[in-house]
Design a protein around this nucleic acid. Structure first.
Length: 511
DNA sequence: AAAAAAC
């Protein structure tokens, strides 16, 4: 029996401009373990307590390279254990000189981790905190939208590892509550996203504040020309590490597209949640207003829903995400603020209420489900004027998506969330409401017809009960096994997947 | 076209 082990990372890159990135080949060898990296016992203990025993491919590749002090250009799918792949070796490298003194002067910022969104910063910080909890190293997180004072106080007391979003970080530098002169290690997480968001000037400012003598790790979903340029300017002889083809989607995620009229979409979301028995679903909209509106409509349909987007206060954002993670909310309706990197354990499904403008965002959105070896559903609602976006997505992921029609059959709502009358108010007017209780609920039935060569009836999909993946699925060893299985077994056609829904859709055997 | 991020 041979288990997958990671090959020499240098064999993994193919950097000709425009060339497709390749999956690094898996060679037979011994089972990799966290023990083999020479990490301190205090770190290993925290790793074990976090439930991990076998490093994921990105961890197996990156940890030795980071420990050796080299710069890294990393491309890894989300959900692959990327955060640990840089956090663990950072902690290890800072540990030998870690001070146990209470003096703030003995705890300068030596590692800086930058992320594009506040929620992601918070999440990375929680991971770093967990991995370093048995060490004397201190860490904290700073981002905008919240009071600066507690952050300033934490910085004043001294931290070795700082996680931040760029704007607030620079704010602290300007306020002189932060000095970056002793940073030895820098991580740019989701670097492509940061460039997309126009962070380049901020990044340049920050990079100019850092010592030239340092180790830089850049993680990005894609190695675009922009990213390569950034790397060429700020990285020194980086080792390229790729563990999965960028722009690829997870085989554990079943992707289905529903052709539907725009006006039927919110009813379709309610119906999918009801008929599929979804207890926890992340719904993506393209606009902040659209997300708020949909959350209100879902609430009217009796679904516990809330919105998360950039126009909500940071307190509301954090509360929404917390409640969602705890399972207190059925539908979290989000903009692309939630598209990247967020780790929601065993999230069973993602719904695209709107198809994203950028096909890459589709890959990131649906990457919130089917993480770490678990399975998930990615259901996308596509209106006639979104066909171009659908085509772009199929082109990016290099395969056609299964398209179905969706017959929306939900009770008539008297008012739309914006206060406008529904387009069919007549029978739902006040006078008739007293009859409604004893009768069949009033329904509107609409099906969006179209001639699509790949079109399939939707009935099979709804006949099968949804089976959530076991909680244990999030462990890293599961992911490694799933990866191996995926490589050895040919992909099943969708029909087979649909037919096998009575059983847990695990891609690996239980051990 | 839209989103995100400092005040």
């Amino acid at each position: 029996m041979s288990d997958p082990v990671v090959t020499n990372p240098s064999a993994a890159s193919s950097d000709a401009p425009g060339a497709e990135t390749r999956v690094s080949p898996q060679a037979p060898g011994p089972v990799p373990t966290f023990d083999q990296f020479g990490l301190s016992a205090d770190i290993l203990r925290a790793v074990v307590e976090s439930g991990y025993t076998i490093p994921t491919p990105i961890q197996a590749q990156a940890i030795p390279v980071v420990l050796a002090g080299r710069d890294v250009m990393g491309a890894a799918q989300t959900g692959t254990g990327k955060t640990a792949s840089f956090s663990l070796p950072i902690i290890q490298r800072l540990l030998p000189t870690a001070s146990t003194s209470a003096s703030p002067a003995r705890h300068p910022v030596r590692a800086l981790i930058l992320t594009p969104t506040r929620e992601l910063a918070d999440q990375v910080a929680a991971n770093v905190q967990a991995y370093s909890k048995h060490t004397p190293l201190r860490s904290t997180v700073v981002f905008g939208g919240v009071d600066m004072n507690p952050q300033s106080e934490a910085l004043r007391r001294g931290v070795e590892i700082l996680i931040a979003t760029p704007g607030r970080l620079l704010d602290h530098v300007q306020q002189k509550t932060l000095n970056l002169g002793q940073v030895q290690m820098l991580v740019l997480d989701e670097a492509d996203r940061m460039l997309d968001m126009g962070f380049l000037p901020d990044l340049q400012r920050i990079l100019n504040l850092l010592p030239k003598e340092r180790q830089t790790l850049l993680f990005s979903a894609t190695f675009s020309g922009e990213i390569k340029k950034l790397a060429a300017t700020y990285l020194r002889n980086p080792q390229t590490i790729e563990v999965a083809r960028s722009n690829s989607t997870n085989a554990n995620v079943r992707q289905i597209v529903f052709e539907i009229a725009e006006s039927d979409k919110s009813g379709a979301v309610t119906q999918l949640i009801r008929e599929r028995g979804l207890k926890q679903v992340l719904v993506f909209c393209n606009s902040k207003i659209g997300a708020s509106r949909l959350a209100r409509v879902l609430e009217k349909d009796g679904i516990v829903a809330t919105a998360i987007h950039g126009d909500r206060t940071q307190g509301e954002r954090m509360q929404a995400l917390d409640a969602f993670k705890k399972g207190e909310i059925e539908a979290l309706v989000a903009t692309d603020v939630a598209a990247r990197g967020l780790d929601i354990t065993d999230l069973p499904a993602v719904i695209n209420f709107d198809l994203p403008f950028s096909a890459e965002d589709y890959v990131h959105r649906i990457g919130r489900t089917g993480r770490a070896g678990a399975t998930g559903d990615a259901l996308s609602l596509c209106s006639p004027n979104e066909r171009k976006q659908l085509a772009d997505i199929e082109k990016l992921i290099k395969r056609p998506l299964e398209v179905m029609t969706l017959k929306v059959d939900v009770p008539v709502r008297r008012e739309s969330s914006s206060g406008r009358r529904d387009e069919r108010p007549a029978r739902a007017e006040r006078g008739e409401h007293r009859h409604a209780r004893s009768e069949e609920p009033r329904r509107r039935s609409t099906s969006f017809e179209r001639s699509h060569s790949r079109q399939q009836p939707v009935d099979d999909f709804f006949l099968k009960p949804y089976v959530a993946s076991p909680a244990s699925a999030r462990k890293a060893q599961d992911e490694a096994a799933a990866e191996a299985e995926r490589k050895s077994a040919p992909r099943q056609p969708l029909a087979a997947l649909l037919g096998g829904l009575g059983m847990p859709r695990r891609t690996q055997s239980e051990s």
